[in-house]
Design a protein around this nucleic acid. Sequence first.
DNA 1: TCTCTGGATCGACGATGGTCGATATACGCG
DNA 2: CGCGTATATCGACCATCGTCGATCCAGAGA
Lengths: 118, 118
Amino acid sequence: MTTPALIDPQTQTCCSSLVHVPLGARQADDLSHRLKALADPTRLRLLSMIGARQGGEACVCDLTEPLDLSQPTISHHLKVLREAGLVTSRRRGTWVHYALVPEALERISAALAVTEHR
Amino acid sequence: MTTPALIDPQTQTCCSSLVHVPLGARQADDLSHRLKALADPTRLRLLSMIGARQGGEACVCDLTEPLDLSQPTISHHLKVLREAGLVTSRRRGTWVHYALVPEALERISAALAVTEHR
DNA sequence: TCTCTGGATCGACGATGGTCGATATACGCG
DNA sequence: CGCGTATATCGACCATCGTCGATCCAGAGA
């Protein structure tokens, strides 16, 4: 496969906005699940710190220190982000590097947009 | 003032994406608060049903029936959306009509977008 | 193999959130 | 004013979430 199954053709008609056609229960559950992953200040900052990093990657040690939270807590948040498809993790020797999945963020952004972009 | 204070110049540099510059604590709290209001399937469907309505308005009675939830629950969700600035309410005789605030959704969408739009 | 370090998992605890029934409030109409 | 209807608020209950310390697992190097 070229890309992981970011879009389920069964539940997701396309990437159109929710404000134009009423959302079904399935689609609402799916979108809310991804939004829940996003709706936490720590996770937003994690995404932001990973994205701001040149190369687009950051290891856990880089993320733990500036946030003033325990390492298990950071690890937990990264797991939530990973399971929502918002980041990927990759082992590099002793360290684990996390990277954004830009398409995932873009999909959510498009679902919330009122006016059509691009 | 021409527009309500949707953007706080103190905490919000502009409407740029979170993935380009690391988010501060204030900004992360602010954005996560708005995302929490969005991160519920019932509220997403409410927004969607209001937006899909021609005229952009819907009264509570229109929203309660199709969702198979009690009227107090719907009222609670609408309050959450209103306090997050995502909808406005307006009394019309006996009924209360809710309408979207497109700029609010657009702002959140822009904050999540990776690529710059428009 | 032993040890050290980075990260993940576990179990527990307090806080927050979604839902309901009961009740209160607002409006229109006799 | 009194009644009926449309919404909002209240109080309670159960589920989910964010956080922690303790512990476990994986890789690197001696």
